[in-house]
Protein backbone atom coordinates (compact mmCIF):
# COMPACT_ATOMS: atom_id res chain seq x y z
CA UNK A 1 0.00 0.00 0.00
CA UNK A 2 1.42 3.38 -0.98
CA UNK A 3 0.20 6.93 -1.19
CA UNK A 4 0.16 8.66 -4.52
CA UNK A 5 -0.46 12.33 -5.24
CA UNK A 6 -3.26 12.70 -7.78
CA UNK A 7 -4.79 16.03 -8.80
CA UNK A 8 -3.17 17.54 -5.72
CA UNK A 9 -4.70 15.01 -3.33
CA UNK A 10 -2.89 12.11 -1.61
CA UNK A 11 -4.62 8.84 -2.55
CA UNK A 12 -3.97 5.39 -1.13
CA UNK A 13 -3.28 2.80 -3.84
CA UNK A 14 -2.24 -0.88 -3.75
CA UNK A 15 0.98 -2.34 -5.14
CA UNK A 16 -0.47 -2.38 -8.66
CA UNK A 17 -1.74 1.19 -8.45
CA UNK A 18 -5.46 0.45 -7.93
CA UNK A 19 -7.44 2.69 -5.57
CA UNK A 20 -8.04 1.39 -2.08
CA UNK A 21 -11.06 3.66 -1.64
CA UNK A 22 -13.03 4.25 -4.86
CA UNK A 23 -15.00 7.05 -3.18
CA UNK A 24 -12.07 9.49 -3.26
CA UNK A 25 -11.88 9.37 -7.08
CA UNK A 26 -12.43 12.49 -9.20
CA UNK A 27 -12.41 13.05 -12.97
CA UNK A 28 -9.20 15.07 -12.70
CA UNK A 29 -7.51 12.04 -11.13
CA UNK A 30 -8.71 9.88 -14.04
CA UNK A 31 -7.16 12.27 -16.52
CA UNK A 32 -3.80 12.17 -14.68
CA UNK A 33 -3.87 8.37 -14.48
CA UNK A 34 -4.74 8.06 -18.17
CA UNK A 35 -1.91 10.39 -19.16
CA UNK A 36 0.50 8.28 -17.07
CA UNK A 37 -0.65 5.23 -19.06
CA UNK A 38 0.11 7.03 -22.33
CA UNK A 39 -3.52 7.62 -23.26
CA UNK A 40 -3.97 10.95 -25.06
CA UNK A 41 -5.72 13.53 -22.88
CA UNK A 42 -8.15 15.19 -22.62
CA UNK A 43 -10.11 11.95 -22.68
CA UNK A 44 -12.86 11.51 -25.26
CA UNK A 45 -16.56 11.05 -24.53
CA UNK A 46 -16.16 7.32 -25.21
CA UNK A 47 -13.45 7.09 -22.56
CA UNK A 48 -15.74 8.76 -20.04
CA UNK A 49 -18.62 6.53 -21.05
CA UNK A 50 -16.50 3.49 -20.20
CA UNK A 51 -15.09 4.95 -16.97
CA UNK A 52 -18.50 5.94 -15.63
CA UNK A 53 -19.94 2.58 -16.63
CA UNK A 54 -17.08 0.80 -14.80
CA UNK A 55 -17.81 2.76 -11.63
CA UNK A 56 -21.56 2.16 -11.85
CA UNK A 57 -21.01 -1.59 -12.24
CA UNK A 58 -18.51 -1.64 -9.40
CA UNK A 59 -20.85 0.10 -6.98
CA UNK A 60 -23.76 -2.14 -8.00
CA UNK A 61 -21.99 -5.48 -8.17
CA UNK A 62 -18.84 -5.18 -6.08
CA UNK A 63 -16.50 -5.85 -8.98
CA UNK A 64 -15.69 -4.09 -12.23
CA UNK A 65 -16.70 -5.84 -15.45
CA UNK A 66 -14.31 -7.88 -17.62
CA UNK A 67 -13.65 -6.90 -21.25
CA UNK A 68 -16.27 -9.33 -22.53
CA UNK A 69 -18.92 -7.94 -20.22
CA UNK A 70 -17.93 -4.38 -21.14
CA UNK A 71 -18.21 -5.25 -24.83
CA UNK A 72 -21.70 -6.64 -24.30
CA UNK A 73 -23.15 -3.97 -22.07
CA UNK A 74 -21.21 -0.68 -22.03
CA UNK A 75 -22.25 0.41 -25.52
CA UNK A 76 -18.60 0.32 -26.65
CA UNK A 77 -17.38 -2.67 -28.69
CA UNK A 78 -14.45 -4.83 -27.61
CA UNK A 79 -12.46 -3.59 -30.58
CA UNK A 80 -13.04 0.04 -29.58
CA UNK A 81 -12.17 -0.79 -25.98
CA UNK A 82 -8.74 -1.96 -27.08
CA UNK A 83 -8.30 1.30 -29.01
CA UNK A 84 -9.42 3.44 -26.06
CA UNK A 85 -7.49 1.56 -23.37
CA UNK A 86 -4.74 -0.38 -25.16
CA UNK A 87 -3.50 -3.82 -24.04
CA UNK A 88 -5.80 -4.57 -21.12
CA UNK A 89 -8.93 -2.44 -21.39
CA UNK A 90 -10.73 -3.68 -18.28
CA UNK A 91 -7.62 -3.43 -16.13
CA UNK A 92 -6.59 -0.02 -17.43
CA UNK A 93 -10.12 1.38 -17.34
CA UNK A 94 -10.53 0.11 -13.77
CA UNK A 95 -7.26 1.78 -12.83
CA UNK A 96 -8.37 5.12 -14.32
CA UNK A 97 -11.88 4.75 -12.88
CA UNK A 98 -10.45 4.39 -9.38
CA UNK A 99 -11.93 0.95 -8.70
CA UNK A 100 -10.18 -2.32 -7.78
CA UNK A 101 -8.81 -4.63 -10.45
CA UNK A 102 -11.75 -6.58 -11.93
CA UNK A 103 -12.14 -10.02 -10.48
CA UNK A 104 -11.24 -12.33 -13.31
CA UNK A 105 -11.65 -15.99 -13.74
CA UNK A 106 -9.75 -19.10 -12.77
Amino acid sequence: MTTKLLAGTPVEVNEEGFFVDPDVWTEDMATELAAEANIAVPLTDKHWQVLHYMRKEYFEKGTGPTVRKLGKSSGVTVKELYQLFPKGPAKLAALCAGIPKPRGCV
Binding site: V67, K91, P102
Partner: peptide, 8 residues
Protein backbone atom coordinates in the same frame (compact mmCIF):
# COMPACT_ATOMS: atom_id res chain seq x y z
CA UNK B 1 -5.99 -13.67 -2.61
CA UNK B 2 -5.03 -11.67 -5.66
CA UNK B 3 -4.29 -14.81 -7.64
CA UNK B 4 -7.91 -15.10 -8.66
CA UNK B 5 -7.73 -11.78 -10.39
CA UNK B 6 -7.02 -11.36 -14.02
CA UNK B 7 -5.80 -8.37 -15.94
CA UNK B 8 -8.48 -7.85 -18.49
Amino acid sequence: ASATEKGN
